[in-house]
Design a binder for these strands. Structure first.
Lengths: 139, 139
DNA sequence: TCAACCGTTTAGAATAACTAAAAACTAAAC
DNA sequence: GTTTAGTTTTTAGTTATTCTAAACGGTTGA
């Protein structure tokens, strides 16, 4: 149904977030959100955009990813020094991190149960609890 | 008792890790390990060294932190893009991260209980489970 | 319709964190 | 001491990310 208007969904997302639908943003939004849950780095996304003949600079990719994150369309996940992943799944969930190849993968939410969550210190509140399960090759 | 030989402990640690006890490494080890549990960045530690009139270059601080980490004396914790913390507590434990000022703090281990830990995918094993509780100012 | 204005967006330049390589130095072994 | 092997420093990258100034595009008024 949305074959005729491939940008319709991306457009809606941008409008909902109060971001102007520019060619670059639409293109990136489509790459990000029209392919199911994804975990991308800025570099990767830039590469995909090039391959998709969308002209964007890497800086714009960073700007866009940060704006999307700010707007709540993405979530930034930091697992390794010097590399940020952006996750299209913004609901509460956790991650496997494959140390060998640097891949990030969602953990189905019911597979982690935190029975006890620590009290925040006075004057502070818990913004988010993040669980990262680091995986290595089985011995 | 160790007042007379302030470097004795640091010396032992280095020897245990098979690292030559040079002036820089001894000085840094002392700053790191003789003050209880700490979470430092390379920049911070370099600053402390300077203040302690220990001549070390920033590159050496980075090298040393990485060597100590490799040797199991430290653990690297990544919570924010573009900044690594090194934790002198290498036992299994978790962290509060204060988003406002970028401070990292240990969570007493019995304050987090993971009832269910996810199965690793086939061919993989769990190397480590990391819980980060992000704190913001209470509304 | 056109032009002047003005906030927004973009992309190249700049910055910060970190690493690598080569030369200068130190510690330990003989 | 001299040699050797391991360390530190310096310098020069590299990489991820941010800054900024110029280009864009939409809006208003003529």
């Amino acid at each position: 149904m949305s074959n005729e208007r491939p940008y319709a969904r991306a457009m809606q997302r941008l409008q909902g977030a109060g971001l102007r639908p520019t060619r670059q943003r639409l293109g990136l939004a489509r790459l990000l959100f029209d392919r199911g849950d994804r975990h991308v780095t800025a570099e990767q996304l830039h590469g995909e955009a090039m391959g998709d003949s969308l002209k964007v600079s890497l800086a714009t990719v960073y700007n866009t990813l940060n704006q999307f994150t700010e707007a709540g369309l993405l979530r930034e996940v930091v697992v390794e020094a010097g590399r940020s992943y952006f996750d299209t799944n913004t609901s509460a969930h956790h991650h496997f991190f494959h140390e060998r190849d640097g891949m990030l993968e969602d953990i189905p939410s019911d597979h982690v149960v935190l029975t006890r969550v620590p009290e925040p210190p006075p004057g502070k509140k818990v913004a988010r609890v993040e669980v990262i399960v680091r995986l290595s090759d089985a011995g």
